[in-house]
Design a protein around this nucleic acid. Structure first.
Lengths: 141, 141
DNA sequence: CTTGACTCTATACCTAGGTACAGAGCCCAT
DNA sequence: ATGGGCTCTGTACCTAGGTATAGAGTCAAG
């Protein structure tokens, strides 16, 4: 698969793929004698993963960490494990905060639905407290 | 409360607050005769909300929408409701994707814990499928 | 009544994450 | 064997979201 097809399938520009390669987010592509890059289909999924992780607020460096986690499984396991655990906590926090936002928005939608004005603003209120326990406690999905 | 205190409490720079005001994310601050801005304590929470929402992958424009939702509760309710519902769906998607990442990372942490190598990579695998369920919206990128 | 910390506006600059040329080399259907 | 459409490298440019600097005014403790 050549770069244009990967780009089309993953929904990004060609430049972006080359940029990711330079950044080390994508492995150096295998090259044809002509110099053309050749990709496996896995790459498409990898790129989609990157875009989604970005949409979840991770930076490219963080995403790089996440991706690298998969290659290292066995070797240097304590180090890898520490990183995975740290990322896991970040994710828990994000989930908690999003859950809080969801709750607030649901209240808002219901209020709008029955044309009754809100007593106070749920959106900001909820986020004040409900997000600092990254131990799978609050709001399971 | 003056701008420096708000900045310190919210954990951002002074410039950032002025920037948010210019962007319309924060309401125009009330002014002293001297020209100094005066803030209520609510502003600190509002700013923290903004930073957290950013960390969850929302742009300042999207955050602006979210903030504006609270003021509009009753009037133009169908419009507000539509926006709130749309945001709610974005949030569901994010939560689903984060949950998928969490599942994948948990697998990884457990594998590392017992020193056994992974059969395949959970991280990218999981994200392929598990994120498109909230109200049949086909994730555009 | 001065001195040091704070604030004002305006403008310039910075990083992250792309995106767009320019000029050249492939590929392949006609 | 050639023209249209790929791809290559390299460099320049762009947007979002700040961050820093300059030059001037303000506040309050000593």
């Amino acid at each position: 698969m050549r770069i244009g097809e990967v780009a089309a399938r993953a929904g990004v520009g060609i430049q972006t793929l080359r940029y990711y390669e330079r950044r080390g987010l994508l492995p150096k592509a295998h090259r044809h004698p002509s110099g053309y890059r050749e990709y496996e289909t896995l790459t498409v999924r990898l790129v989609r993963f990157i875009k989604r992780a970005q949409d979840l607020g991770f930076t490219l460096n963080e995403i790089s960490d996440l991706i690298r986690l998969r290659e290292n499984d066995r070797r240097r396991s304590s180090e890898v494990r520490a990183l995975a655990t740290a990322k896991l906590e970040d994710i828990e926090v994000k989930i908690n905060r999003l859950s809080a936002m969801r709750r607030a928005l649901r209240v808002l939608v219901e209020e709008c639905a029955c044309e009754v004005s809100a007593p106070s603003c749920p959106i900001i209120e909820v986020l004040d407290n409900s997000s600092e326990q990254p131990a799978g406690v609050g709001a399971e999905v």
